[in-house]
Simulated scan of single mutants.
Amino acid sequence: MSADLAHIRQVMQEADCLYDEAQVEAAIDRLAASITADLAERNPVVFCVMNGGLILTGKLATRLNFPLEMSYLHATRYRNETTGGELFWKAKPEVSFIDRDVLIVDDIFDEGHTLKAIIDFCRHAGAREVHTAVLIDKTHDRKVKGLEATYVGLPCIDRYIFGYGMDYKGYWRNAPGIYAVKGL
């Protein structure tokens, strides 16, 4: 079933811009500098969490000027909905990371259930150390206890957001900034 494109366009027209493109790009520069300082000599495997982490991973990778391997994994709780459900693995990593540092790159650290499951998977599969980089860290008290992202681009209020990899019902991952849906 095709989305109502008029509704999808209206969501963008009415959305509040929380961070513009320049602010997001500056945050990615800061992420890259911190990651480089910590991991340049560690021979990391960088995993993009699809689909949300695609834009951040692509932009971040070109700023990481050191040897690394890249791959992807696909685990979701949303399936184009606006609320999360049970974790569903669409694709597990195919690169070995036994005794390697792993950097998981994702769009957002919301409650952390998906991120925690991915971290646990990597640890059980033999990763030496697991690091996480997220563009957005939502500010609220519903997070998985004790879980924090290693590298955070920007903090964000607790609203339904899209852009730079995050979607609204499968759309607007390509939005050039971080936007909040009106009323959500």
Score class of each variant (00 low, 15 high):
residue 47 F to I: 08
residue 43 N to M: 05
residue 184 L to Q: 15
residue 84 G to E: 14
residue 156 C to S: 15
residue 117 A to K: 11
residue 57 T to D: 09
residue 129 E to A: 11
residue 173 R to A: 03
residue 1 M to P: 04
residue 63 R to F: 07
residue 160 Y to D: 13
residue 33 A to D: 15
residue 56 L to Q: 02
residue 118 I to C: 03
residue 180 A to Q: 04
residue 163 G to P: 13
residue 115 L to H: 03
residue 179 Y to C: 04
residue 55 I to A: 10
residue 121 F to K: 05
residue 143 K to S: 06
residue 70 M to H: 14
residue 14 E to L: 04
residue 4 D to A: 01
residue 5 L to I: 13
residue 173 R to V: 01
residue 26 A to W: 03
residue 83 T to D: 12
residue 76 T to Y: 06
residue 1 M to R: 07
residue 156 C to K: 09
residue 26 A to F: 06
residue 107 D to I: 02
residue 77 R to S: 14
residue 118 I to P: 01
residue 135 L to V: 04
residue 172 W to Y: 15
residue 155 P to Y: 06
residue 137 D to M: 00
residue 134 V to H: 00
residue 81 E to R: 15
residue 164 Y to P: 08
residue 40 A to T: 00
residue 165 G to F: 09
residue 172 W to I: 03
residue 9 R to C: 08
residue 126 G to C: 13
residue 89 W to N: 04
residue 132 T to Q: 09
residue 172 W to D: 02
residue 81 E to M: 11
residue 184 L to K: 15
residue 107 D to F: 01
residue 72 Y to Q: 04
residue 28 I to F: 07
residue 169 K to A: 14
residue 40 A to S: 08
residue 144 V to K: 00
residue 78 Y to T: 07
residue 34 S to E: 15
residue 6 A to I: 06
residue 87 L to E: 06
residue 4 D to Q: 03
residue 122 C to F: 06
residue 22 A to K: 13
residue 74 H to R: 09
residue 183 G to N: 08
residue 73 L to D: 05
residue 65 N to T: 15
residue 64 L to F: 10
residue 139 T to W: 00
residue 99 D to Y: 09
residue 123 R to D: 02
residue 92 K to Y: 02
residue 143 K to A: 09
residue 21 E to V: 08
residue 58 G to Y: 07
residue 32 A to G: 14
residue 75 A to D: 01
residue 112 G to M: 03
residue 37 A to G: 08
residue 91 A to N: 12
residue 181 V to R: 01
residue 36 T to S: 15
residue 158 D to S: 05
residue 58 G to W: 05
residue 62 T to R: 12
residue 6 A to D: 13
residue 45 V to Y: 08
residue 34 S to M: 07
residue 12 M to R: 13
residue 94 E to A: 10
residue 171 Y to N: 12
residue 10 Q to Y: 02
residue 131 H to E: 08
residue 12 M to E: 05
residue 95 V to C: 07
residue 47 F to W: 07
residue 181 V to Q: 02
residue 40 A to F: 00
residue 61 A to T: 10
residue 42 R to V: 00
residue 36 T to D: 05
residue 77 R to V: 07
residue 153 G to R: 09
residue 143 K to W: 04
residue 134 V to N: 01
residue 58 G to C: 07
residue 94 E to V: 07
residue 87 L to W: 07
residue 53 G to N: 02
residue 37 A to C: 03
residue 143 K to G: 01
residue 66 F to D: 02
residue 169 K to M: 13
residue 177 G to C: 12
residue 183 G to F: 10
residue 76 T to G: 08
residue 135 L to G: 01
residue 159 R to M: 10
residue 53 G to R: 03
residue 42 R to W: 00
residue 11 V to A: 00
residue 166 M to K: 05
residue 29 D to T: 13
residue 33 A to L: 14
residue 121 F to T: 05
residue 22 A to C: 03
residue 26 A to K: 14
residue 38 D to R: 13
residue 5 L to C: 06
residue 20 D to C: 14
residue 120 D to A: 06
residue 150 T to E: 12
residue 171 Y to C: 10
residue 3 A to Y: 14
residue 56 L to H: 02
